[in-house]
């Protein structure tokens, strides 16, 4: 087995072991922390699809966390707490927003793409801030978590934890399949050499746009989970620094690897947690750390820990 895969499975097994460990230590806080880690791992994995494999540097992925989160929050606000419906709307609405943003931004590349995705996310952020009906700046409280009848009770923290873990595993596996399918080969080819890709007869645009939409939809699901996790929604779900953090998770973990987003989300969020317990000014350490990672550890953790893996 490739070392990257071993690393990934090891991390996922560790996630699975957290609830009993937290129970044994009587520290329910860990359950909360790692659930958050896994939700961001889903978001980072979705970004990795377009950023790592597709070469599209989206600086606006928090938009879909917000759209997915607000889809749940707004439905709940109007008394609809059917989880199937909420999550379906979260995924669907994120896909639609990704289609709208993507159809404009995917035509561009490089710096334009970065600025446009950032700008549209900021637009959604301001939209969230200005709609008083849904709490505006103050946010929206989720009265209760998404309801799945007798099947699942997300009010049970351990059960909710394992639901998130199951979704994470599913997402990581699905993206792994996707990037190795015909479709995945095309978006990776377009990233590797666009002129050659056109010369052999592909039009990259529809494939890139489809990847962008899929990525947005998955991140929308992460948003629905995050809303349930925090039980409280604010426009800060879509804050531009969120987009930056998700992007950093992908790079820190290792771009274009299956394990990367999971490792990156784990290390970044745990580091933030450690640093913030130590000083309120933890960002003064995190910022330069980020610069150093970019300058000296470009391949990320997966690259450092598993040098033999390529497109796993």
């Amino acid at each position: 087995m490739k070392r990257g895969t071993t690393l990934l499975i090891g991390t996922l097994l560790l996630f699975a072991a957290i609830p009993p460990i937290a129970g044994w230590l009587n520290e329910p806080f860990y359950l909360d922390l790692f659930r958050r880690v896994m939700i961001f791992a889903i978001a980072a994995a979705s970004l990795n699809l377009i950023l790592g494999y597709g070469g599209m540097v989206s600086f606006g992925h928090a938009a879909y966390l917000g759209v997915g989160g607000y889809a749940v929050g707004i439905l709940a606000h109007y008394g609809i707490d059917n989880g199937y419906l909420q999550w379906a709307v979260a995924i669907g609405a994120s896909a639609v927003v990704a289609l709208a943003i993507g159809s404009i931004s995917v035509r561009t590349s490089g710096i334009y793409f970065i600025m446009i995705t950032l700008a549209f996310t900021q637009m959604l952020y301001y939209l969230g801030v200005s709609i008083e009906e849904f709490g505006g700046d103050d946010g929206l409280r989720l009265a209760r978590r998404s309801q799945f009848g007798d099947l699942l009770d997300l009010a049970n923290p351990t059960l909710f934890y394992y639901v998130v873990l199951a979704i994470l595993v599913l997402v990581v596996f699905a993206i792994h399949r996707l990037v190795n399918s015909r479709f995945g080969m095309v978006i990776r080819a377009a990233r590797s050499n666009e002129a050659r890709t056109q010369a052999i007869g592909f039009s990259p645009y529809p494939y890139r746009l489809a990847a962008f939409v899929i990525s947005g939809a998955i991140c929308g699901l992460a948003g629905a989970l995050l809303a349930n996790h925090t039980s409280f929604l604010t426009p800060d779900f879509m804050h531009w620094t969120r987009s930056g953090e998700i992007m950093f998770m992908v790079i820190l973990g290792g771009i274009a690897t299956s394990a990367g987003p999971v490792l990156g989300a784990s290390v970044l969020l745990l580091l933030e947690d450690l640093l913030s317990a130590w000083t309120v000014h933890w960002q003064i350490i995190l910022g330069p750390f980020l610069v150093l990672v970019v300058l000296f550890a470009r391949k990320g953790l997966a690259g450092l820990l598993a040098r033999d893996e390529r497109h796993g």
Partner: peptide, 25 residues
């Protein structure tokens, strides 16, 4: 990409559309 992947992509470009998401190429 490997040499074989390079050529397989060129074959793929002329073997119908590539909106196939699941089966490993």
């Amino acid at each position: 990409f490997t040499a074989l992947d390079n050529v397989a992509l060129a074959v793929q470009a002329h073997a119908g559309h590539s909106f196939r998401f699941w089966r490993p190429a």
